[in-house]
Simulated assay, not measured.
Amino acid sequence: MSDNLLSASRVITDKVAENISRVEELAYEIRVREVMTSQVITMHPNDTMQTVLETFRQARISGAPVLEEGNLIGLVSIEDLIRCLLNQDLAAPVHQYMTPNPVVVKGDDSVIEALKVFVSKKYGRLPVVDGTGHLIGIITKGDITRGLLRALERDYQSEEVRRYRASHLFEDIESERTSLILRYNIKQGDFEHGGEASAKIKRALLRLGAPPQIARRCGIAVYEAEMNLIIHTTEGGVIRAEIEPHQISIDVYDYGPGIRDVELAMQPGYSTASEKVREMGFGAGMGLVNIKRCVDWMKLESEWGKGTRLRMKIYLPPPHTHSKGEALAVT
Rank of each mutant, 00 (worst) to 15 (best):
V105L: 06
I173V: 15
Y253F: 11
E235T: 08
I291F: 05
E301K: 03
E196I: 12
K122L: 05
I201T: 01
L115C: 10
K200R: 13
A17F: 14
G285K: 09
R217N: 12
C84D: 03
V105D: 06
G287A: 08
S7I: 00
E176K: 10
D143L: 07
A64W: 08
F56C: 05
I138Y: 09
T331R: 14
D14A: 15
D296Q: 01
K187V: 00
D261I: 08
T234V: 09
I173Q: 11
E196V: 15
N46E: 13
A265N: 06
E174C: 02
M49R: 03
R216H: 12
F282I: 09
D172A: 12
Y270N: 14
H95K: 14
I138S: 08
D108Y: 13
L229D: 04
R31H: 13
A151K: 15
I20P: 04
R60L: 08
V52Y: 04
N101W: 03
G195L: 07
S198L: 00
K276S: 14
E54L: 13
V16M: 08
A27R: 06
E235V: 03
E68A: 11
E275A: 10
L300Q: 02
T234W: 05
R162W: 04
M98H: 07
I112R: 09
D190T: 02
G209M: 02
A284H: 13
S38L: 04
L300D: 02
N71A: 12
H134Y: 15
R309P: 02
R260S: 13
C218W: 00
A59I: 01
H232I: 00
V238E: 13
M43G: 04
L316K: 05
R83Y: 12
Y223E: 11
K292H: 10
V277C: 04
L26I: 06
G305Q: 04
V252L: 01
R60W: 02
I291K: 02
K324L: 13
I78K: 15
E25W: 11
I30Q: 06
G325S: 08
A59H: 12
T234L: 10
S9G: 13
S249V: 07
Y156G: 07
P65E: 06
D109R: 07
Q96Y: 12
V222M: 04
R311H: 10
L90N: 07
L81N: 06
L5G: 08
I231K: 06
T233S: 07
A91H: 14
K106H: 15
S158I: 11
T55Q: 10
Y164C: 00
V32R: 09
I291L: 02
D14P: 15
E244T: 11
R60V: 00
T51A: 08
Y270A: 01
T145V: 15
P318S: 12
R311V: 04
W297C: 00
E159G: 00
G107Q: 12
G70Y: 02
L206G: 00
D190N: 09
L6N: 15
H44W: 05
R203L: 11
V128L: 07
S302Q: 03
L90D: 06
V111D: 01
I231R: 02
N185E: 13
A92S: 11
G219P: 05
L149F: 10
G305E: 01
S110K: 11
S9Q: 14
I73F: 03
L72C: 03
P65T: 10
A166E: 13
M286Q: 11
F191E: 01
S175E: 10
R146I: 00
A8V: 15
